[in-house]
Design a protein around this nucleic acid. Sequence first.
DNA 1: TGCGATAGTTTGTTATACAGACTAGTCTGA
DNA 2: TCAGACTAGTCTGTATAACAAACTATCGCA
Lengths: 102, 102
Amino acid sequence: MRADLEGFLSLDRVVHEPARLVILTVLAQAEEVEFRFLERVSGLTKGNLSSHISRLEEAGYLAVKKFFRGKLPATSLKITRSGRSALKGYREQLNRALQRRG
Amino acid sequence: MRADLEGFLSLDRVVHEPARLVILTVLAQAEEVEFRFLERVSGLTKGNLSSHISRLEEAGYLAVKKFFRGKLPATSLKITRSGRSALKGYREQLNRALQRRG
DNA sequence: TGCGATAGTTTGTTATACAGACTAGTCTGA
DNA sequence: TCAGACTAGTCTGTATAACAAACTATCGCA
């Protein structure tokens, strides 16, 4: 199969999902961020956001830290080295596939 | 919401699916193509390919023409103007969102 | 003590990607 | 001539997934 086509089909589906692209993009810039912040900036619903975070955590792309601010629980997210590299790889691969004519 | 994040979430999901990116990319280059050819070049299974074609047809992104070559049925696919512009728009939008830092 | 807010998770529904089974007919060779 | 293999797809079932609504648990305030 042609390399550009191959490129599309071998994209990392964990990263490929738009909602997760949003999360990873924010985290790649902000380094550390909280759930509420992400909820607001992404416009995703809590439930949806929560499950995407789990998915990214399972993939090892982000680290979740739970703590209490005063007496309220809070969740802090941080992109991992692996997550950063997955995003970078995804971007490069997609760019190559898209640019190679269209 | 920030414009780049918005950009991810408003991507055309019909185009966003890797298998369909493959199909559209091939069609954008080849102008007119047959099912069997697409099956080989994409590596997709018949069933899968068939359903993606239906999806793209419903979206108005490609035109399907059925005919007989000798006595065997054949299917010919052609990208529509709208399909071409959807692919172009998708590429531009994604590039903008991805490039705007990472 | 009861109501609304905060901070998420769990659950249920809906959609969709995918492959295998199936349809329909043609060609080939014993 | 008829059995088996091939062509060209479509249909169907399954497993995954995105998504939102409902729920859990706690806090703060009147």
